[in-house]
Design a protein around this nucleic acid. Structure first.
Length: 465
RNA sequence: GGCGACGUACCCAAGUGGCUUAAGGGGACGCUCUGCAAAAGCGUUAUUCAUCGGUUCGAAUCCGAUCGUCGCCUCCA
């Protein structure tokens, strides 16, 4: 069975058929670098990264491109507020984006093109649209002529008449039609500008995504992803300005991520419910946050709550517990069918990247595996190795929520030695029924953040979280 | 005003016509194991899917109405 997922273009779940055998070309809208990105952005970036990784898990070769918009009105405004060059703002937050996504466990894209480095292609694209009659220049600005593109509205399912009527913003009188949108904005004095045949200025918001995606993925490619709110106007406009020039379908599948809400409302600075990714990473490990995100389907809204994160933390410990246990276990004879569980997992995930259902399968497996592992006969070596490998491929490589290191090697040699000594002393005390001493060791360590667990094959320790 | 999404247990959350008299996680309670714990396991916690009608041999799943929540309509992941 192939992978199937919801395509916004058709509003149905479709089987995925790539343009090139066993290969996926995918573009996700990246940040405009005028501020630190927030936990809602992080959800989109994480989910997008997981989709990319899932294709790899299923054997596809993935080319993944995410733009960095480093010239834009918001950047210029921020620069003006602070009295610094806009390139300073762009550089600062580009670096922050790359660092914070890494901290979040988000893998870098194969290419992170920047708008300012794609200027030649952007200008050529606009020029092409003008020559075809799909765009027109007025006083150094260039607008896209929406009436020149028949398919306008096919993604967002809007019709032009409704848009004109429902328009909430005063239309620019220089536009032929109120729904026409800017491809190029002429520069005011002091603003960063690039020379173009119709006057110096900077690209409009939508054009750079069209150009950067096609530059690295071709005029038609497989998947274009982004947040729900980008469907209109951003993605609608991307389609228009791309297909009006190439006459070829732009992205074939569109994926949109549900919003992250706080108190069931959209995050906004005015409501004071705004959290940046780096703030939240100071409070919770990235693995926990990722697992928290993954417990909700990518298209559903996710209401962000501290209680929810705490619940995710506990749940994740259960998964990590099995991963640690299966690698530490001693040889046994018990059978365990990893392939059957993986099949269930894949069935869930192939159906629109259903991570909550995938975890349903995984956690049922955890219960089953723990029972075998801790039974008198234990688990056979071959099965243990397969189970450990499956958990590595899913928990570590696909989801990035499990860690490889056991507590023993994470603490360093000295700590490891001290812990072994304490555990030995306590074992002797317990043997002699000196429970006051053994409990003093365990309670004392607990106060220091270290938990002891007495198992059948001896005592192990780990950090309390 | 136009377009769209959603409402499943104490909380989170899958399931969209028979495999489900509803997965999984968290929480709570009881039990097993343990010197006692912890971890793990077992059991209990929705005969019911916002409400009311309808279609069907059969509905949480389809249709209609009602109530409620949310999003988009050129700043926005």
């Amino acid at each position: 069975m192939p992978i199937a997922f919801y395509n916004t273009l058709s509003r149905t779940v479709e089987e995925f058929i790539p343009m090139h055998e066993a290969e996926v070309r995918m573009y996700t809208c990246g940040p405009t670098v005028y501020d630190y990105f927030h936990i809602g952005n992080a959800r989109s970036f994480v989910m997008s990264d997981i989709i990319r990784r899932y294709f790899e898990y299923r054997g596809y070769k993935v080319t993944y491109v995410m733009n960095i918009t480093d010239i834009d009105d918001k950047i210029i405004n921020r620069a003006n507020e602070q009295g610094v060059p806009s390139s300073d703002i762009a550089e600062k937050y580009t670096e922050a984006f790359l660092r914070d996504t890494a901290l979040f466990g988000i893998r870098p894209a194969d290419v992170h093109p920047r708008a300012t480095e794609t200027m030649e292609e952007i200008i050529a694209h606009i020029q092409g649209l003008i020559e075809r009659g799909a765009a027109y220049a007025v006083d150094g600005d260039v607008f896209f002529r929406v009436s020149a593109f028949d398919g306008y509205g096919k993604l967002s399912r809007k019709n032009i008449e409704d848009l004109v009527v429902g328009s909430r913003v005063e239309a620019d009188p220089r536009k032929e039609n109120p729904v026409d949108f800017a491809l190029w904005k002429s520069a005011k004095p002091g603003e960063p500008a690039w020379d173009a045949p119709w006057g110096s200025g900077r690209p409009g918001w939508h054009i750079e995504c069209s150009v950067m995606s096609q530059k690295f993925l071709g005029k038609s490619f497989d998947i274009h992803a982004g947040g729900n709110d980008l469907i209109f106007p951003h993605h609608e406009n991307e389609i228009a300005q791309s297909e009006a020039l190439t006459d070829a379908p732009f992205a074939r599948y569109w994926i949109h991520f549900g919003f992250l809400n706080i108190d069931n409302e959209k995050m906004s600075k005015s409501l004071g419910n705004f959290f940046t990714a780096r703030e939240i990473l100071e409070k919770y490990p990235a693995t926990v946050l990722r697992f928290y995100y993954l417990q909700t389907h990518y298209r559903s809204p996710l209401n962000f709550t501290p209680e929810g994160i705490e619940a995710a933390k506990t749940g994740l410990q259960k998964l990590q517990g099995l991963y640690d246990a299966v690698r530490a276990a001693v040889s046994g004879d018990g059978a365990f069918d990893v392939e059957a569980w993986e099949q269930r997992f894949i069935t869930a995930m192939d159906d629109d990247f259903n991570t909550p259902a995938g975890f349903g399968a995984l956690f049922e497996m955890v219960r089953d595996a723990n029972a075998v592992l801790r039974s008198d006969e234990g688990m056979a070596d071959a099965a243990r190795e397969k189970l450990a490998a499956f958990l590595r491929r899913t928990g570590v490589e696909l989801f990035g929520i499990l860690h490889e290191e056991t507590e023993e090697n994470a603490g360093g040699e000295a700590l490891d030695g001290v812990m072994r000594l304490l555990i030995d002393i306590r074992a002797e005390a317990r043997k002699d029924k000196q429970f006051a001493l053994s409990d003093r060791i365990r309670d004392g360590l607990k106060g220091l953040g270290i938990a002891l667990e007495d198992g059948r094959d001896g005592t192990t320790w780990k950090y309390n979280s």
